[in-house]
Design a protein around this nucleic acid. Sequence first.
DNA 1: CGCGCTATCCGACAAAAGTCGTCGTCATGC
DNA 2: GCATGACGACGACTTTTGTCGGATAGCGCG
Lengths: 227, 227
Amino acid sequence: MPGRPPFDPFIQGLRSVALFQGLDEATLRELARSARWHEYDAGEVVILEGEAQPCLYYLHYGWLKVVKISAAGREQTLRFLEPGDTFNELGVFAGRTNPATAIALEAAGAWLIQREALLRLIQRRPDFAQHVIAKMAERMLHLVSLVTDLSLRPVTGRLARLLLEGASENVLYRPHWYTQSELAARLGTVPDVAQRALRNLEGEGVIAVERNQIHILNRPALIEIAA
Amino acid sequence: MPGRPPFDPFIQGLRSVALFQGLDEATLRELARSARWHEYDAGEVVILEGEAQPCLYYLHYGWLKVVKISAAGREQTLRFLEPGDTFNELGVFAGRTNPATAIALEAAGAWLIQREALLRLIQRRPDFAQHVIAKMAERMLHLVSLVTDLSLRPVTGRLARLLLEGASENVLYRPHWYTQSELAARLGTVPDVAQRALRNLEGEGVIAVERNQIHILNRPALIEIAA
DNA sequence: CGCGCTATCCGACAAAAGTCGTCGTCATGC
DNA sequence: GCATGACGACGACTTTTGTCGGATAGCGCG
């Protein structure tokens, strides 16, 4: 597991984040100075639902998932976080407790940027506020599409959409942690049903399921199913 | 159907909207001056999904629903809008096309506030930007809870939550337009199933269904079912 | 007052989603 | 190389959700 990375790459990283576009070097340095470094083991809880965390997380390495967990123990994944993503905007900019739990899917490291520095930025830089708003808008669009999926599409249709969205070059790579359970949680169902959906698509020759990847064989058919 | 209301009540109304709290009289007047008035019949489409509408809507009278419609014709209601609500924040502040369709449930009238005036406000007033962010945060929380409901709760559980949330004094009033179809669309299911859920709860003596209202008879039991 | 419309209601059926038990297999660590 | 534990596969079953046909009742409108 890597230790705390040096500052400069961190600042370079910040620059590439949509949220911080257009900010000058000095401002970025100031943000970076206020940040603390934290690492997590696979499976570790990063933020617990209901917690009031006053930091913006900038994920430096590793993957996380953001989930809701029901009393019965079922999980609904809201989104995955990859290196370079930020999260906990709600806690920082709106002063809300986090509505979901974030869990490390593998060993991960993140910078925690202090709330005060960011709020000052909103006060001083209207264009930064605009970026924050744009970011939240993006997140809302995603949530709306998730709602539509869950409500109006059968499991197989959701799977088809996930494949179309997640695949590059007609292949969806599945990292170590991307088990059928995780897939099911993303689709809003249970592992067994997710597997059935996979076999259905495979049986119709639309996809080919291998160990660590899923191939799209017939994209038009998949689009048809996703519609 | 009322005609265009005079300005002053409009400005008073704006003052009471969370979004515009703390703005001085002159600024509100400026906003109001840029606004156009529009009326809609029951059933009329106010905003169509995918449309790029550059106005913020301030609903003055009447109720609207915000819905997604599937290819198969099924509807999922994202939220209801009552007088005093604003909508299309996404179109105005993030420059996105609206992700859902808004339809008038009854005759309605709204002020359309020009985008430019609002964007200027964001540039000039950091605290206004904060309010916008807070508003969107609220919306996101609602969407997250909707996702959780759809994914992790059975229809009866969702109905129980809806009743608990919507009832005042243990009574949920149902206006003319609040048919079982609308209830079903809100719950993310079809009218028949919504009705079954109602009868289930009624059969267990938890609620009493009357013509225009639903009474909560046993709140603890309802909370139990909603859990 | 009667007509027709729409919402509601109901029972039976079909399909989708979820559950359970079991067994094979693969990666990992010892 | 072997034991172990987690993941994946599969079939049978239950529950929930969705569909269909048709009966009934309230409401607005002429």
